[in-house]
Design a protein around this nucleic acid. Structure first.
Length: 502
RNA sequence: CGCGGGGUAGAGCAGCCUGGCAGCUCGUUUGGCUCAUAACCAAAAGGUCGUCGGUUCAAAUCCGACCCCCGCAACCA
């Protein structure tokens, strides 16, 4: 089994604060990162901010900071970092594309691609709105005018550097053909193949009109097209051009998580760039879907953008993670519904899981003086196999379904055994066996839950009398076998995990 | 012909690739239990699987046409 795992999220524009969409992508990545750590792998988990985009310049200007763009970016990047920290994200690096090592990586990368003969000078022609500092196609315009400024765009011609993307058309198609897992979910493969076959053209990778961004190596009158620079962050993050040893260990990425809107860049442009530079391709690019919010498109103009920090104050990061991952299959579009969030909280978390933990610990307090009884035979292995398979396939929703099947079976088991009746009948052996099975099952549930709901899992460990740090430093194989809970150790019921809300 | 996703019980979804008794969760109704956060367990009711046509012994599943909804293409992952 490989001993390392490298995964990335997209890097985010900092022209606003993080929304639930950004949080979702990052939660998914964090869940996978934690699972891989649970397997004992060395995990590199990269997220960060895309700071060389024109959008950021516009945002800075809108905030009255056009003379202090870098200062604006510093503040916004700090806000994003703080937000992810407060949501419990365990990224190993927060990359900013204005950082020095990234510039170094971009330069080294550019030189490789240039040496390969894949950069050429051409003419970029288009309709340009000087106020937007952006190019538009005829379709973008409204009555021939810029949709934002209602002015006539200039028809301009500009000498630019181009990347010979189409040179890699056949190689890309072949790679996707031979590696069916490369583009996920599989429904998206056709989309990508169709794009590569029918629409992909060489791309302009520099702009003379831009004032912000990384200068083109060797020609400072041009700035790099933001995507060309942005994609390189994924290799900067593991030491390309700065720490070759680390780079060799971690690249290629095992998983690159993206939104469905940027799948093209990650499954066509990016792999072609890597081929040109003579570097291996990421193993999997997985696109998640988009949310509507309570049935409506999420948009700033509608003002219904959900703030993950506010929502976490109302619930908790664990609960938001649980809801989003349980309710929406990774890859599908879905509706982020406040009603359903509440329903998931009440039913799955308060009634089923929370109440299960509470009733088992209450019985342990009542019947065995809060001590773990003698070991008894039990079985959970089938669930572990299904769970591991689901996690390996990135079927996170399925993994949660598997955990909840265990939770339901456990509630059923209590009903069958009727520990309260056994207590009255003084059937000590059966009672103790039952309680041991229940407590040990809770330990397994906590383990399976940990990647998804780390705080909850850790609370469960504490309640079961286990020390959290110790529990996570032991090897996963020994933690997952039956019977690790030590007879005689104390449990502590404490407060319910998920109190019912009024 | 811009690209893509979807229409399955009151709600939200799985099943479709590799045809073969229509499944899950919530909600509703009834019953059980008392360890538990009025939680838990059991049972029941509830669907002509968007429409029309085709292939087949057999279609939610394959093929064709059509209707409707949604996302991207513009702030937004």
């Amino acid at each position: 089994m490989p001993t390392k795992f490298y995964l990335t999220t997209p890097i985010y524009y900092v022209n606003g604060k993080p929304s639930i969409g950004h949080a979702y992508t990052t939660f998914v990545a964090d869940t996978i990162a934690r699972y891989q750590r649970m397997l004992g792998k060395e995990v590199e988990f990269l997220t960060g901010t895309d700071e060389n985009s024109q959008k950021n310049v516009e945002a800075a200007a809108a905030a009255g900071r056009e003379d202090d763009i870098q200062g604006y970016l510093d503040e916004m990047a700090a806000l994003w970092q703080r937000t992810f920290d407060s949501l419990g994200i365990t990224n190993t690096r927060f990359i900013r594309t204005t950082e020095a090592d990234h510039h170094k990586a971009v330069e080294a990368f550019w030189k490789r691609v240039e040496a390969k003969g894949d950069i050429y000078k051409g003419t970029y022609e288009g309709l340009y709105c000087g106020k937007c500092e952006a190019f538009y196609t005829e379709n973008d315009l409204e009555g021939g005018l810029c949709p934002f400024h209602k002015t006539k765009p200039d028809h301009i011609k500009e000498d630019n550097y181009f990347f010979a993307l189409t040179k890699y058309r056949d190689a890309l198609l072949e790679h996707i053909e031979k590696n069916p897992e490369f583009v996920q979910p599989k429904e998206r493969r056709n989309e990508i193949v169709s794009y590569i076959k029918n629409f992909m053209t060489d791309v302009s990778v520099s702009r003379q009109t831009m004032k912000w961004g990384i200068p083109v190596p060797g020609d400072e009158t041009h700035r790099l097209y933001v995507w060309f620079d942005a994609l390189i962050n994924y290799i900067t993050g593991v030491g390309f051009a700065t720490d070759e040893k680390k780079f060799d260990r971690f690249w290629p990425a095992d998983l690159q998580l993206v939104g469905k809107d940027i799948l093209k860049f990650h499954c066509a442009l990016w792999p072609a760039m890597l081929m040109s530079a003579g570097l291996p391709l990421p193993k999997v690019v997985l696109a998640h879907g988009f949310f509507t919010v309570d049935g409506q498109k999420m948009s700033k103009s509608l003002g219904n953008v959900v703030d993950p920090v506010e929502l976490s104050e109302q619930y908790s990061p664990d609960i938001i993670r649980y809801y989003a991952i349980r309710d929406i299959r990774l890859g599908d579009d879905g509706d982020f519904s406040h009603d359903r969030l509440r329903a998931r909280y009440e039913t799955d978390l308060a009634n089923e899981l929370g109440n299960l933990v509470h009733r088992v610990l209450t019985m342990t307090e009542k019947y065995t003086d809060a001590k773990v009884p003698e070991k008894a035979q039990g079985e959970i292995l089938g669930a572990w196999q299904e769970y591991q398979q689901a996690m390996t396939d990135y079927r996170l929703t399925d993994a949660l379904d598997i955990i909840w099947a265990v939770i339901r079976r456990t509630n059923q088991f209590i009903e069958q055994q009727q520990p309260w009746a056994l207590a009255k009948l003084e059937e000590k052996k059966m009672l103790h066996d039952t309680l041991y099975v229940l407590l040990e099952t809770l330990r397994h549930i906590a383990w399976m839950l940990w990647p998804f709901m780390p705080d909850t899992a850790e609370k469960m460990f504490t309640k079961l009398g286990l020390e959290v740090p110790k529990e996570f430093s032991q090897s996963v194989e020994s933690a997952w076998v039956w019977g690790e809970l030590k007879p005689g150790s104390g449990v502590e019921k404490g407060e319910p995990l998920f109190p019912r809300k009024e």
